[in-house]
């Protein structure tokens, strides 16, 4: 029972992280119909900025976090304007290749600036030693609680932004039908940029959160790549058009991976993700939370 509790808490924490990445991917998908494969690279890069501030220049944890998020917003906005805009209406595969190119570029740039040879550890925000229950220690720490809560807060904030503000209404309108939205006076281009910027900012937050866990190291290539895959899997499970689905998909994936890791084998983690994905898609080809399937003819 103690083991099951541990696995559940562990799965929940990881799941919230996958959920946040999934949400970032869904935001970009809704805005520009592009799956952003550079998401992992972008959040790796901003995490390195935070690491440089916190560990090299001894900045305060929160200052480093804020700078990383701001840097993420800038990188996301610039990437959309400069790289993605020209391929937005082209063949969809070209956009995939452009985001892959950006991913590779960011990995190389990070390697040039900070080097590939060392794995850098990153300070957690709070104590990373687990809570005590009786004489036993949970695999769940104040820092893990912080991760869960911060993602939750961001998800709620985004929900409010999309559902309760006029900016959110415009963004939803743009996602639904850019041409009509444009005719109605919505400045579509600006909103697309904003969508990318917000998503990249969210990614930056995730990067810093993950770096401070006991399985996170900051390196140009490595742990952050897996984040994109799990995030994408979570988004597809939920349905790429559904922000709520992304969050549910993330948590479900986190829990399943955690249980399977322990009860079956921890060498085939990505295999579980594949199995879950295929199982869901065979039943619901457009994810759990897809609306009635419409096919563009």
């Amino acid at each position: 029972m103690f083991r099951f509790l541990n696995l559940t808490l562990n799965g929940l924490t990881n799941g919230m992280i996958y959920a946040a990445v999934a949400l970032a991917l869904v935001m970009i998908w809704r805005a520009t119909r592009i799956v952003n494969f550079a998401q992992g690279g972008m959040l790796m890069f901003t995490t390195f900025i935070a690491w440089d501030l916190a560990q090299v220049h001894h900045a305060n944890y929160w200052v480093a976090l804020v700078v990383a998020v701001v840097a993420g917003i800038l990188i996301g906005g610039v990437a959309e304007r400069v790289l993605v805009r020209p391929v937005e209406n082209g063949p969809p595969l070209n956009a995939v290749i452009v985001t892959l190119g950006l991913l590779i570029f960011l990995q190389a740039l990070a390697g040039m600036i900070w080097g590939n040879s060392q794995a850098h550890s990153y300070p957690p925000a709070f104590r990373f030693i687990g809570y005590k229950v009786g004489d036993r220690t949970l695999r769940f720490s104040p820092n893990d609680l912080f991760i869960v809560l911060s993602v939750l807060v961001v998800v709620i904030a985004l929900y409010v932004l999309f559902q309760r503000t006029s900016l959110g209404l415009q963004m939803r309108a743009t996602a639904f039908n850019p041409e009509v939205a444009g005719l109605l006076g919505v400045r579509v281009g600006r909103l697309l940029t904003l969508g990318w910027a917000l998503a990249a900012g969210l990614g930056a937050l995730v990067g810093v959160l993950v770096a401070g866990t006991s399985s996170g190291y900051v390196t140009p290539v490595g742990p952050f790549d897996a984040l994109l895959i799990y995030g994408f899997t979570a988004a597809v499970i939920g349905g790429l058009d559904s922000p709520g689905g992304a969050v549910v998909g993330g948590v479900v994936l986190g829990l399943i991976l955690s249980y399977a890791d322990s009860y079956i084998s921890n060498f085939i983690q990505t295999m579980y993700a594949l199995v879950v994905l295929i199982a869901v898609l065979m039943i619901r080809p457009k994810g759990i939370f897809s609306r009635t399937s419409e096919r563009r003819v």
Binding site: A54, Q55, Q118, A119, H120, S121, Y122, P123, P124, F126, R127, F128, I129, G130, K132, T137, L138, R139, S141, N143, G212, S214, Y217
Partner: peptide
């Protein structure tokens, strides 16, 4: 993290003290 403190024994290739303390540096603070 789980407050488990057994005696550790590590083979030569995985035990260089300077490398290890560098890797653990940031966590030590917490």
């Amino acid at each position: 993290k789980v407050n488990y403190n057994p005696q550790l024994a590590v083979s030569n290739v995985g035990s260089d003290p300077i490398t290890l303390s560098g890797l653990l540096e940031a966590f030590a603070k917490q």
